[in-house]
């Protein structure tokens, strides 16, 4: 079997295994697995409203997935997407409600830009610490996740005079679109999906069509070789983290300007950043792969909400399935060995 086929087969097999494990857990727990999966399917594709909300759920997943994937390509593990996303969320909400009197054509891009800048700044810190002071990016970004959570909570509290959420963003900064809502039966689908798809293209373009992207990938493949070839490894590390943070910050903007129209105090992380790791892993850190990975996980997450009502099954079953899928993809080595043996047997016949 060629490498390429194996690379596509591993995630596919993992998804199938994950769904199987989920089915087994449902049966063992005394639930009807068929009913469960039918409820899941209907929760995703049941009607126009569900489809609209599913696409809305996929939107931030695409961006958090891109953020993780982009850093991965440069050999960095950005586990801090969560924190960068929260910073972007707050920045977008603030610019969205505080700046008045701008036309939408300026205000909306400005709010998106603010989110991108906030996310980029938060990720830049990680890149800087890694490049200049050799602080491992995983630990630094986990610590910054919690720092961001508490900082944004405190900021929201003081911005809203003690309330738990900021004022609603202005009409001129919203991503909501009447037509999109109408064709999906008043779902909360918004224009963000186009921003996300545009970013898929942007990531592809940076990595495949620019010199800088070539350098970033080279650093990811082999730091020493890249340095020997005259590339500035440290600068590329910082740049990669910063660009990754742009994607993450925009993910936050999707929530601030699209789904929720504000920023609110959170008891814990939103989970979108951590799910981004799953998305990137499933999508093999490839922009198109991320798009499909986000579509799968976003659909599962939204469809799961239908399971308690329609089949009496707790929606957490889907988080279990996603975690199992990640474990299988991460353990790709063993799947590869199995596939190779299987392939050899066939050839032997």
């Amino acid at each position: 079997m060629s490498n390429r086929v194996v690379n596509i087969l591993v995630p596919l097999i993992s998804v199938v295994l994950g769904l199987l494990v989920g089915g087994i857990i449902m049966v063992v727990s005394g639930y009807d697995a068929i009913d469960g999966y039918i409820a899941l399917w209907n929760g995703i594709f049941g009607d126009a409203y569900s489809i609209g909300n599913t696409i809305r759920q996929i939107t931030p997943y695409i961006l958090s997935g891109l953020a993780v994937a982009f850093a991965f390509r440069t050999g960095l593990f950005n586990i801090g997407v969560e924190g960068q996303l929260l910073m972007g969320w707050l920045a977008a909400a603030y610019v969205g409600y505080a700046i008045e009197g701008l036309p939408r054509i300026i205000h909306l891009p400005l709010a998106l830009l603010a989110a991108a800048a906030a996310g980029a700044f938060w990720a830049f810190i990680v890149g800087f610490l890694k490049a200049k002071l050799h602080v491992h990016e995983v630990i630094a970004s986990i610590m910054l996740n919690y720092t961001a959570l508490y900082l944004t909570n405190a900021a929201i509290k003081s911005l809203s005079d003690g309330s738990f959420k900021t004022p609603t963003v202005l009409e001129s900064a919203t991503l909501r679109n009447q037509w999109l809502r109408e064709i999906t039966d008043n779902s909360s689908l918004h224009l963000g999906i186009f921003v996300a798809i545009l970013m898929v293209v942007v990531m592809w373009f940076i990595l495949e069509k620019t010199t800088r992207g070539y350098e970033l990938k080279s650093v990811g493949f082999n730091k020493n070789a890249a340095e020997y070839a005259g590339m500035n490894v440290n600068r590329n590390i910082i740049l990669a983290m910063t660009i990754s943070g742009v994607f993450a910050g925009l993910g936050g903007a999707m929530e601030a300007l699209g789904t929720y129209q504000n920023a609110s105090i959170k008891a814990a992380a939103s989970g979108i950043g951590f799910d981004g790791i799953a998305v990137a892993l499933l999508g093999a850190n490839n922009p198109i792969g991320v798009f499909f990975g986000a579509s799968l996980f976003g659909s599962l997450k939204y469809g799961a909400l239908n399971m308690p009502n329609a089949a009496g099954i707790p929606e957490e079953i889907v988080s279990i399935i996603i975690a199992v899928i990640i474990l299988f993809v991460a353990s790709g080595y063993i799947l590869r060995v199995a596939l190779e043996k299987f392939g050899k047997k066939k050839e032997g016949k």
Partner: peptide, 26 residues
Amino acid sequence: FRADQTVTGVAVNMLAAAITVFLVKL
């Protein structure tokens, strides 16, 4: 299985959070 350990850790955290709440509801 020589999996990426950071990813494994993240996945186990997700799995534990989901399984325990699932069991509480069950």
